[in-house]
Computed example of a mutant assay.
Amino acid sequence: MNRPERKGASLISEVNRTNVPYGTLAIWFLGQESVIVKGDGITVYIDPYVSDYLDKDGPARSYPAPIVPEDIVGADLCLITHEHEDHMDAGTLPIFHEQNGGAPIMAPACCKEPLLRMGVKESQILVADNSRQTELLSKLEITVLPAAHEQLEQDGDGFHRSVGYVLKLNGVTLYHAGDTVIYPGLVEQLEKIKPDVAMLPINGRDFFRRERGIVGNMNYREAAELAVRIGAETAIPLHYDVFARNAEKPGNFVDYMYEHFPEQKIHVMARGERFVYVSGQAFLDRD
């Protein structure tokens, strides 16, 4: 008797089988800010938080992740935005590294020691450096942007504690903001980049969450205004659904966009959904 394929294994099989033409990217949403991005044969995991790992004081997930760490195979790269456990997941990354040993993990400098303690080999850890662009796997260009998880924080060597990533892959530019508020200079940097896809946190911040030790991000109004200001072709909200005490309704983002910027393209992703972004580059004759 053949057993049905597990849902998570089926999703990863879909990731590994998906091939997208030039000018497009395939994106899968795993919850919070955890996504998979694929283009030109390269599969990138960003902040893969798919375990039930919690520290002793951590809140429970509102729902199980669409996959489990053991499902992840075929990855080429992992990007970590900062050290919080719902982004640098101690329940996922050791297994990710074991099963995808050739895939480097790029993360802020402050994450290096925790990653080493998780068993990640030093040779596979890349420091996220916003002073230069990085080309990986011959087809992927990464620009690191500082992120202000309420505040910009740097170590003695000038490396930022939190970052976002700009990926140029397969003719598409994608900005994954990580956890951040809008700080002086961010808008200007992104206006120059003008990403095709902007993936932005919307859960906001307030005094009472901060009092409970919950560090915040831009809210849905700020995320909507930012997406429009920087000329993002499509905006995708993130960081609103995994923890009940730090949640937001993505419908508020949709309503605000529709009322104020009805021509701005947006997409709210279902859990485990494959969304294929198609840019104008997909229709150009490359000969």
Rank of each mutant, 00 (worst) to 15 (best):
Q124C: 02
E150D: 09
T81I: 04
V197P: 07
P48Q: 13
V50A: 15
G23T: 02
V228H: 04
H84N: 03
N203V: 14
P146R: 11
T234M: 10
C111F: 07
V50C: 13
R274Y: 05
A270K: 13
A177N: 01
D196V: 03
P48R: 10
D40L: 14
I236D: 07
D71A: 11
P64F: 14
P104I: 01
R212V: 07
V228G: 05
I193M: 12
F275A: 04
N19H: 15
Q32N: 14
E141W: 15
P237V: 12
A103W: 00
N2Q: 15
L25V: 11
H239P: 09
L174G: 05
V37T: 15
T134V: 09
E5T: 04
G185H: 03
M257T: 10
G204N: 01
I80E: 06
Y22G: 10
S162P: 05
A26S: 12
I95W: 00
I193Q: 02
N246Y: 13
T143V: 14
E211I: 07
S279I: 06
A90R: 05
R3T: 01
P237T: 08
G280A: 12
L169M: 11
E211Y: 08
V73I: 10
V44Y: 09
Q264P: 00
K192E: 00
L186D: 01
H87F: 01
W28C: 11
D255Q: 11
G31T: 05
K38S: 06
L200D: 07
E135D: 07
L169V: 13
H267Y: 06
N16Q: 11
L115V: 03
Q281F: 12
G102Q: 14
E225A: 09
R229P: 13
R132V: 14
H260G: 02
E153R: 15
T92F: 00
Q281N: 02
G91D: 03
G31M: 06
D206S: 13
A65C: 04
T24H: 01
L167Y: 08
P201F: 10
L152V: 10
P262R: 09
V278E: 08
L93E: 10
C111S: 12
P4E: 14
F96A: 00
G213D: 09
D206R: 09
N170M: 12
W28A: 10
G101H: 08
A109C: 10
P114Y: 02
H176V: 14
V215M: 06
G31D: 07
N170Y: 03
Q151G: 06
I95P: 02
F261M: 02
K194H: 02
R212G: 08
L226Q: 09
N2G: 15
